[in-house]
Design a protein around this nucleic acid. Structure first.
Length: 429
DNA sequence: TCTGGGGTCCTAGGACCC
DNA sequence: TCTGGGGTCCTAGGACCC
């Protein structure tokens, strides 16, 4: 018989805040928050900020006064910094376990099945990550991913030892489940939480004890699996190989409302060429592209917040392509079909769909192979220049049509260990 | 005035086929 | 007069995650 499964969930504590604090240690012990793109809402909070009652995802303008009152340090998000630190943390974790799955920018599942010293190993990892990267992490150990998530929450609350909580060591796991509100579980959000509560399921223990057939009938297979996982039967496996991307999306809310075609075209051009970069970095080709435009709430139809649905258009490519010029041309053409003079646009984006590996393409009868070769070479040159001199060093002229769509990011930290210009200067003597 | 961006999975229903 | 049933594929929409 194979040994019982054992998963570790390693989660960085208040990750974005911890990243910012690395470069400003004076912020230790003070409330800190990090804002989403466009400085829209709160996406990370230090423990001190949580203690002030600042909710996750709160719109910035609604909490701005509280933030000022309590002298909370506020940062725009700096994804170059977070991405770089994430990579360093993940490398350490991957080298410590037989198998790992990077689940998000700040979380990693490890498979520790059959490792008798899992507890000690986890505590050692907490130390190691802290001293090698400066990032504090917590670990939850359990026989299923869902329970490992829950164990991690408990570890963050200071239960367990040295930042590690082992579910198997709990004396009364059912009591813990009973104290866990159903919407605090991984996979249960507000909406399902309300529906479960309406049906009398308010805590994790009740969910674990609900009959599978009943869960299936009311919620489908997703909750059946969740229930099984809570009972300790592993249904979710470790995904060690990141599955091939099925779609690539680039979209942004605009820094200011956009009404001019030239500005919109500049934004669309930027999105399409950025999407092309992502596509080529993954060695993929796209067979279709969707461009969409979202207008501002128009105040009609009673509800002032009601937004008209996005206007979109999907185009297909034959042969499949990763050529930014082709993507830009298609995206701009599509956007122009949907653009209306007099409309006020607040957001736009593109999606690349029906992706396939570049090696698998079968040339069509009427394709011109030499043209595709030239395009490929142009893109290689473009990517090489931008890798050397920074993203956007070489770009499409239509991007110069206007900059007013760009994000607000008024409080971006300058810290970035991958950018020479941003390194702190130290003077001797 | 101001509420992110980028993903995945599941389900239901329709089209189509034999 | 009677008018099947089972399978696949696709799409849109809804839900979730961080």
């Amino acid at each position: 018989m194979s040994p019982a499964k054992l998963f570790a969930l390693v989660d960085c504590n208040n990750f974005y805040v911890s990243c910012e604090r690395l470069f400003q240690p004076a912020l230790e012990g003070r409330p800190v928050v990090v804002l989403s793109n466009n400085d829209g809402c709160l996406v990370a909070r230090s423990n001190e900020a949580k203690a002030l009652g600042l909710p996750m995802g709160a719109p910035y303008f609604q909490v701005a006064r509280t933030l000022r009152q309590h002298q909370v340090a506020v940062f725009s998000s700096n994804y170059a910094l977070y991405g770089d630190l994430s990579r360093r943390v993940m490398q350490i974790l991957a080298s410590a376990a037989p198998a790992s799955e990077v689940y998000s920018i700040d979380e990693c599942f490890l498979d520790l099945t059959g490792i008798a010293t899992a507890d000690a190993l986890s505590q050692q990892l907490v130390q190691q990550v802290r001293s090698w990267t400066g990032i504090p992490v917590s670990v939850g150990l359990a026989p299923t991913k869902t329970l490992a998530k829950l164990a991690n929450r408990l570890a963050k609350k200071g239960l367990g030892q040295g930042g590690v909580l082992d579910w198997r060591a709990l004396s009364e796991p059912s009591a813990v489940l009973q104290r866990t509100a159903v919407e605090d579980l991984w996979g249960i959000s507000q909406h399902w939480g309300q529906r479960l509560r309406a049906l009398g399921i308010t805590d994790a223990l009740a969910l674990a004890q609900a009959p599978s057939a009943w869960l299936q009938a009311h919620f489908g297979v997703v909750l059946v699996r969740l229930g099984r996982e809570l009972q300790g039967f592993s249904c979710l496996t470790l995904e060690t190989q990141p599955p091939a991307r099925k779609q690539i999306m680039v979209s942004r809310s605009f820094g200011q409302p956009v009404t001019q075609w030239s500005v919109l075209r500049a934004a669309i051009t930027h999105f399409a060429s950025r999407a092309g970069e992502k596509l080529r970095a993954q060695g993929l080709l796209a067979q279709a592209l969707t461009v969409f435009l979202e207008t501002s709430p128009d105040g009609k139809h009673g509800d002032p917040k009601a937004r008209p649905p996005p206007e979109s258009l999907t185009l297909s490519f034959s042969p499949p392509t990763a050529d930014s010029a082709t993507l830009v041309r298609a995206a701009c053409w599509g956007a122009q079909q949907r653009f209306r003079d007099g409309s006020i646009y607040r957001k736009a984006g593109i999606m690349l769909l029906d992706l396939m590996p570049a090696g698998q393409v079968v040339p069509g009868l009427f394709d011109a192979p030499e043209r595709a070769d030239h395009a490929r070479q142009r893109m290689q040159a473009l990517d090489a220049v931008n890798a050397r001199f920074g993203r956007g060093a070489l770009r499409f002229a239509a991007e110069l049509g206007g900059d007013t769509w760009r994000l607000r990011a008024e409080r971006r930290s300058s810290a970035c260990p991958t950018d020479w210009q941003a390194l702190p200067r130290v003077r001797a003597g």
